[in-house]
Nucleic acid binder design. Structure first.
Lengths: 122, 122
DNA sequence: ACAACATGTGAACAATTATTCATATATTGT
DNA sequence: ACAATATATGAATAATTGTTCACATGTTGT
């Protein structure tokens, strides 16, 4: 189906196998994009700090702003990103809106990241 | 030790407890920064694609460029970032340099991310 | 209906970043 | 030593992004 010319590094046949294998196991473009998009969300220390607060309790926006010494607006912008990516969920109670973790993957992912970093230090 | 005034959302005492709890469980600034830095590495679809290739085999730079239809230079730049963050390791063999996964966290993290995305679809 | 409070959001600016291009480094075979 | 090949890297550019500011939306109590 795909007759590409392969001429790098000399060894031709091995590389053809690789290309086939990669084509089979590589997720679709849209899924790769979604994955990268998800990890981008974890790639900001403000959002990580928000998640660490939510590990401990369900809190409202102004509490987060207070706890992290940041503007309510900045927090709100970040919460929107976290919510769009389904890492947190929200619940209204009067004037306040309370945020909490949406699912367990959040914690697993952060824990794994932390393990990776700790290992580096050895 | 830290006598901050808390005046948001009315309920004063609950929030003081929260602040204490957060101060106890929140990792240090540098660790939060490192964590975010690590996830930033996963937050690019080119790097994710590179990692997916490395899930299957140890490959050289020109193979990666070939498999992902990208410039050798672009791949090389991204490999540097992956290596700096200890997600991949390299080994020289003649003129070629072969890259492979550095540890198992890489796969766990990507798998968890994928699970999270799949769940969203339900 | 209105004032006070909690949160959401668009525009703007500064900072970060992925890719390209040109070039440097390193290895091999002659 | 030199040409050929494989990889690395600095500079430049375009695109993305986090925060701030100003203001909009939504809720409560009077």
């Amino acid at each position: 189906m795909n007759n590409r010319e392969i001429e790098c590094c000399g060894e031709t046949h091995v590389h053809e196998d690789l290309l086939e294998l990669v084509n089979k196991t590589m997720p679709e473009e849209t899924k790769l994009y979604d994955l990268a998009e998800l990890f981008k969300v974890f790639g900001d220390s403000t959002r990580i700090r928000i998640l660490y607060v939510l590990f401990e309790a369900e809190v409202c926006v102004c509490d987060l702003a207070e706890a992290l010494h940041m503007t309510q607006s900045a927090i709100s912008h970040q919460l929107r990103i976290l919510k769009q990516n389904k890492l947190v969920k929200s619940r209204r109670e009067g004037k306040s809106i309370f945020y909490s973790l949406a699912d367990s993957h959040v914690r697993t992912i952060i824990d794994q990241g932390r393990e990776h970093i700790e290992e580096d230090r050895i």
